[in-house]
Design a protein around this nucleic acid. Structure first.
Length: 694
RNA sequence: GGCGGGGUAGCUCAGUUGGUUAGAGCAACGGCUUCAUAAGCCGUGUGUCGGCGGUUCAAGUCCGCCCCCCGCUACCA
């Protein structure tokens, strides 16, 4: 027997700006299963995390809700924990990044970074909303892209042309908070010179021990191949967060204090339990002797915070580094990204109202591997898999055996079972290895094989037949003793995924399931409680009802990223388009308008640009011999053949632009959000190429 | 274009260090059973293992080239 491992586990901190949804649950369930598995194995494992509560978005949401930030995040914390309870996520402490413990730890790590000479000051020009009295984070500024002039682009990059820039570069910027034009203000920001840690990060990320290989390669290719940029870790007031002790008026950026929140939560847990912080998150020099492991579970979207910044901070502050960062992919529903308008953005609360929590836990487990693949929640597969595996195979074992041993209980000695139980013990080793390596899909496959052979066994014994012959009572009891022991063994193996089933199995056989070891020895001579249903079959209509409800309620107060698919109903048109692209408030004169030379043109030729993802190459005729070559980003929406011959409206005096694929001499006018939803302007009968639009 | 991940039965995927006629689950079809939540059991697959070439006694499994899909990233309207 090896001595128990000491393992500290975290999941990414949910942002206190909205409710928990099924996408979050992939990670929390993944983490919970791993933690439950470790505890079941007898290891000392603690799961500590918290709400992530700071930043501009929280300020704005609180303002909208008409309450203080503190009150807002307190409500969220309560709501989040309620959802975790519903989904049987069992953690040891759930804190908040807005805690005194966190403030203190931020200060400690900050001083260490200062001492290490990693902090520099630089002036940063940022847009300031004079009405709201706040600097605007990138996502709260929109305007025209400085490169392609596409309207209503966020402050960090253009989703039309993909170019990146700073909010101050935007043309015609406006604040999404007040719709007013922000002004540029310069403020002092503090930066971490990450490049100084480059050699360390290179070594840590590439050692092969801490990260999945895909992740290590990704970092190598995207960040570590060139000098690391300084990381801006401060925000000027007003900002909901912690003021930096040695830099009044500046606050730590939310991504600085969030991971430190892991430590703060640990500190709270230590206070609660009397444990010592240093035993669980030691200074790096002590790490070996303490023998503790630190595991972070996160989604691939926040990879670089956890694999570059965070290790960098810990290294500089001389804390123990994560043993491993486990990164998972995103959840899709029916093969598509979750979407509010399609109702696939399902809140945890809504799911639980319609469907069984155990079903989701099992389904996710059956789909989760050790890699970063996205995971699809396919309605049909979900229903089939859960019904046939859990109800049809696993629970059925208990269901078909129980009543024959209701009176007698289990046999006093474990009967000959053809080696089934022993085979189950052997499989347990593989199952444990799979859990340990986060390959739950494999673990579930192995367990279902056991369930299948248990059913075959019972089928062969036919206890319902021999029960009719009183002389064969012992045979009946023995067959069911085997069946129920196989069921119990499976319940132990499944217990990290299905704690409720394990509880029910424990109650059925009068011995609570608490340790993996219980799967290694059969249970004999005990009473058997009356059988009661352990799990209900799922029905597609419940899934559909859940989707329907999710359509109606949306998902809380995040700024809607309207995904309107148009043509909804008759009567009044929805305001989605205006929400997505608000009216421009800057007025222009007629002269401004006439500067734009809009012309009718005929598409003479249209062809694919094979190397381009979005572009079509158009040859436009303006009448006579006047032709223009224009590249238009409409590839996803139009086929070249359908365009030839039709009339379009073109900006004829746009500065020509040299593109990778050739010179673009104008711009074809169109509307819509982009991608497949692009709609060219068309003309009524009678319009001729060359005519000017007035 | 770069990086990463894939391409195996209708669908979702396993295939460990290359080794006998390539597997599982689900779905489908046929039969048996009716203890069990219309549950269970048995049987049924002529799949070019994306393509081509190579190494080898032997390749889904190694090497090279190519094609396609996904993600990130770059260029770009």
């Amino acid at each position: 027997m090896t001595s128990p491992r000491k393992i500290l586990v975290t999941a990414a901190l949910p942002y206190a700006n909205g409710p928990i949804h099924i996408g979050h649950l992939v990670e929390y369930i993944q983490t919970d299963i791993w933690v439950r598995f470790q505890k079941l194995m007898g290891n000392r494992c603690i799961f500590i995390w918290a709400d992530d509560t700071h930043g501009t978005a929280i300020m704005i949401s609180a303002k909208k809700a008409g309450v203080s930030e503190e009150e807002f995040i307190a409500r969220m914390n309560e709501e989040h924990q309620r959802d975790f309870g519903t989904f049987q996520i069992a953690y040891d402490n759930y804190g908040s990044t807005n805690s005194s413990e966190n403030r203190e730890l931020c200060g400690r790590i900050w001083s260490a970074l200062r001492q290490a000479g990693l902090i520099v000051e630089k002036d940063v020009s940022q847009l300031y909303d004079t009405v709201a009295g706040t600097f605007l984070a990138d996502r709260f500024v929109k305007g025209n892209c400085p490169k392609c002039n596409a309207p209503d682009q966020y402050g960090d990059n253009c989703d039309k042309c993909g170019s990146t820039y700073t909010p101050a570069d935007l043309k015609n910027p406006y604040s999404t908070l007040t719709k007013t034009t922000p002004e540029i203000r310069s403020a002092k920001h503090l930066f971490v010179e990450l490049e100084k840690l480059h050699p360390f990060l290179e070594q840590w990320t590439q050692s092969g021990e801490h990260l999945q290989t895909e992740v290590a390669n990704y970092l190598k290719g995207h960040f570590l191949g060139e000098p690391l940029r300084d990381w801006d870790v401060s925000r000027p007031a007003p900002y909901f967060g912690f003021e930096i002790s040695d830099s009044p008026g500046n606050y730590w950026y939310v991504w600085f204090d969030a991971p430190i929140g892991y430590m703060a939560s640990l500190e709270q847990w230590c206070q609660k339990t009397g444990e010592k912080f240093n035993d669980w998150w030691p200074q790096r020099i002590d790490a070996e002797s303490a023998g503790v492991e630190i595991h972070h579970f996160i989604g691939k979207d926040i990879t670089y915070f956890h694999t570059l910044f965070w290790p960098g901070m810990l290294h500089a502050a001389k804390f123990k580094l994560p043993t491993r960062v486990h990164i998972h992919g995103f959840l899709t529903v029916g093969g598509e990204k979750m979407s509010k308008s399609k109702g696939t953005f399902v809140k945890a609360e809504t799911y639980a109202k319609h469907l069984d929590v155990s079903a989701l836990r099992y389904y996710f487990a059956s789909k989760l591997g050790p890699r970063l693949d996205d995971l699809d929640l396919n309605p049909g597969e979900f229903i089939d898999k859960v019904n046939s595996d859990l109800v049809g195979k696993v629970v059925n074992i208990a269901s078909r055996c129980t009543k024959f041993v209701q009176a007698s209980g289990l046999s006093a000695n474990y009967p000959e079972d053809g080696g089934l139980f022993t085979a189950g013990v052997a499989a347990g080793k593989e199952i444990a290895t799979a859990y340990e390596g986060c390959d739950y899909a494999r673990a579930m496959r192995l367990i279902m094989e056991l369930a299948a052979s248990a059913n075959v066994y019972i089928d062969g014994k036919e206890p319902w037949k021999i029960a009719k012959d009183p002389a064969r009572a012992q045979e009946v009891q023995d067959a069911c003793t085997v069946g129920l022991n196989l069921f119990r063994q499976i319940a132990v193996y499944l217990s990290p995924v299905l704690p409720k089933l394990a509880e029910q199995a424990g109650a059925l056989l009068n011995e609570p399931i608490a340790h993996w070891k219980q799967s290694q020895h059969p249970l004999v001579g005990t009473k058997v409680a009356p059988f009661s249903h352990m799990m209900k079959r799922l029905e597609l209509k419940d899934f559909e009802a859940m989707i329907e409800e999710s359509k109606e309620s949306g998902v809380g107060f995040q700024p809607a990223q309207a995904e309107g698919t148009g043509d909804r109903g008759q009567g009044t048109d929805s305001g989605d388009a205006l929400t997505a692209e608000p009216l421009v408030t800057d007025l222009i004169s007629i002269d401004d308008f006439t500067k734009v030379d809009l012309r009718v043109a005929r598409v003479i030729n249209a062809e694919e640009v094979p190397e381009a993802k979005k572009l079509l190459k158009l040859t436009l005729g303006l009448g006579g011999d006047v032709k223009r070559q224009v590249f238009a980003g409409i590839k996803a929406a139009y086929k070249p053949a359908d365009l030839v011959g039709r009339l379009v409206i073109v900006v004829a005096n746009l500065q020509p632009r040299q593109m990778k694929f050739g010179l673009s001499e104008g711009m074809v006018t169109a509307c819509g959000p982009g991608g497949e939803e692009v709609f060219l302007l068309s003309l009524d009968e009678g319009a001729k190429p060359g005519m000017r639009v007035h």
